[in-house]
Design a binder for these strands. Structure first.
Lengths: 352, 352
DNA sequence: GTGAAAGCGCTAACAG
DNA sequence: CTGTTAGCGCTTTCAC
């Protein structure tokens, strides 16, 4: 019934090609091709005529054929753990903005933080993109499959989460300095018992934040005992809650509470704050808190969360820029963006 | 300097093709092609041998050639106003999940709410995707350029923001019912003077929410005077603030405050709440507030914001599903998802 | 200025 | 079971 009425749409007539146009105007395909790409050797009149007919026949170039012929894909692939995280979606926005300006398309993939899935994706990408921009999956240390790409001439740019032993350009924020900014800010207020919620340290970003935390504490002449550091399996809200529980349990058996906690991620900070507050602990009066990433929600919380801004959009945009540099054969090696500490109520102990 | 040391990488050796493999093993290309695609007519031993050599030579299929040959692109295009908005990034996540399962790639574009840019994108998409999933730009009413696609056999699925006169499947939430849920909830608490912050009514989602608001008020026997309705140019935080200012100004000149406001978007609700609170107005005691979309931040606010959940991930996933149905020639016409009102403190007037 | 023809890498008849 | 071959739609020498 319905099917019949839709018949005309089902019956996909073949798309018009330059052959159809050539035939209609009784010229050769090369002439059409040249006219359409504004080649100088075609008379203005003919060009106009051809363009007109092309429009009339609803011609759209078959870019796949163009790609096959020219070897260029005009496409870059983007691989991130997940699209639906403010940090990544904002970086992707930057990448797409840059790519659009250059007339490139953007293919998107989610690794879901699984190296296995990431490898499959990367492998499949080899044939269809000119370059790949990625932030690696957190569940593994070996990401050498990215080298298949660079080895076969597909440039790779890694942003934020990079990987050792991969031939790629990198765009990162100075995580170590970001951590230092956060810890110094806490130290400046006279706090000494500063804990750190870390992510898996084999991932550069979390390893470096830990590093920055440790060296800043060391420089301040403070010793960091084991219980100061908690390594979450990730930096989710849930892990933040688990951290808070650990701290509360220790406190119940006599250990003093931290004066402050520097979290390697905002979501972990959020989870912990909620858990602490549930236990009657006040932020920042009892425990000051600083997060990392400056997610949009930070400023909306009942106790606005201090955080280290990573300039995610800029990172994406720069990664795109670096990609096009590489495509042009000008390999920029690495860009490091300076982080910025945004101070809010959660870390200001001596203010009412 | 550096350039020289990178020389070996620059000098992209040609990728290996099935010809190379065929030559090496002294068989024909078709045999290789068949072996690689697991055709039944090749002996298991040969298949194994061919696969081995393929791996050894780092062969990756040139999908562009496959595409050109088969006419399938195995790619769907996605056009949204902006990636970096929780609603859209979450929907895209759903689309990508579905596409990945089907072995399809996803191309992403941002219209930035500009119909002009959207048209350019849609036009360029014709040659490179099997189907297009989109949420249309808000700045125009005519989106007929999408018909170029469906007319040339590229199915279109519109989600959330649809367009009249476009031959496409649609996945939407019942906005009218969502509005009704919100308003009924307010009415049930005895409020009568309920305002509505609307988006541009020419866009289906905002038009329908307005519709739902009006009919629910009407059914309750309440009249809606002009000042009850405010039509923002969009539903941003900034427009929300502008709304609040308008209300406050009117109040200063003697008009009573609304008892409640139903916002067609969470960001607008947020902006207004902040502005109201700045003016010393309490939420929900003085004015109850309900938003729309149930953005993640709603539950994190100092006064958690009641909102109508749109199930963005599910919308994306369903849109993907509908796309593959259409690609299979089974045109689902439309899916309507039932919204759900999430009640939080911002709309509970009679609770302390 | 314009046309003929050779592929880009792969698939799928059509022959053996 | 395996090989030969004709394109998919386009760009681009090389001729005229």
């Amino acid at each position: 019934m319905r099917k019949l009425s839709h018949h005309s749409f089902q019956m996909t007539r073949k798309r018009t090609s330059i052959y159809d146009i050539a035939q209609r105007l009784d010229v050769s395909v090369s002439t059409v091709s040249r006219a359409l790409s504004d080649h100088p050797s075609i008379s203005a009149a003919l060009k106009e005529r051809i363009r007109e007919v092309a429009r009339e026949m609803h011609y759209t170039p078959n870019s796949v054929a163009v790609n096959l012929k020219t070897g260029r894909r005009n496409t870059i692939g983007v691989v991130v753990p997940g699209i639906n995280r403010s940090f990544f979606s904002s970086a992707i926005e930057g990448i797409e903005d840059k790519a659009y300006k250059q007339g490139y398309d953007v293919l998107i993939y989610q690794s879901k933080d699984s190296a296995e899935r990431e490898e499959r994706i990367v492998h499949s990408l080899a044939g269809k993109v000119d370059g790949v921009i990625a932030s690696v999956a957190a569940d593994a240390t070996d990401h050498s499959y990215y080298n298949h790409l660079s080895a076969s001439g597909v440039p790779v740019v890694l942003f934020d989460r990079t990987a050792k032993g991969v031939d790629a350009g990198t765009v990162i924020v100075d995580d170590c300095q970001g951590a230092a900014l956060a810890v110094e800010h806490l130290l400046r207020q006279g706090m000494k018992r500063i804990y750190h919620f870390a992510g898996p340290r084999h991932v550069n970003v979390w390893g470096n934040r830990l590093e920055g935390y440790l060296s800043t504490m060391r420089e301040a002449g403070l010793s960091v005992s084991d219980e100061y550091i908690f390594e979450g399996i990730n930096t989710s809200e849930q892990e933040g809650r688990r951290f808070a529980e650990t701290v509360l349990t220790a406190h119940a058996s006599g250990q003093p509470l931290p004066e402050a906690v520097f979290f390697a991620g905002d979501f972990a900070a959020l989870g912990a704050m909620l858990e602490f507050q549930k236990a009657g602990i006040r932020i920042p009066e009892d425990i000051a808190v600083v997060g990392f990433a400056n997610e949009p929600f930070c400023q909306l919380l009942p106790t606005p969360l201090s955080s280290v801004d990573q300039f995610s959009y800029k990172m994406g945009y720069m990664a795109g820029k670096m990609m096009f540099d590489r495509l042009r054969g000008e390999p920029q090696v690495g860009i490091v963006i300076a982080p910025e500490l945004i101070i809010r109520k959660s870390s200001l102990k001596n203010t009412k």
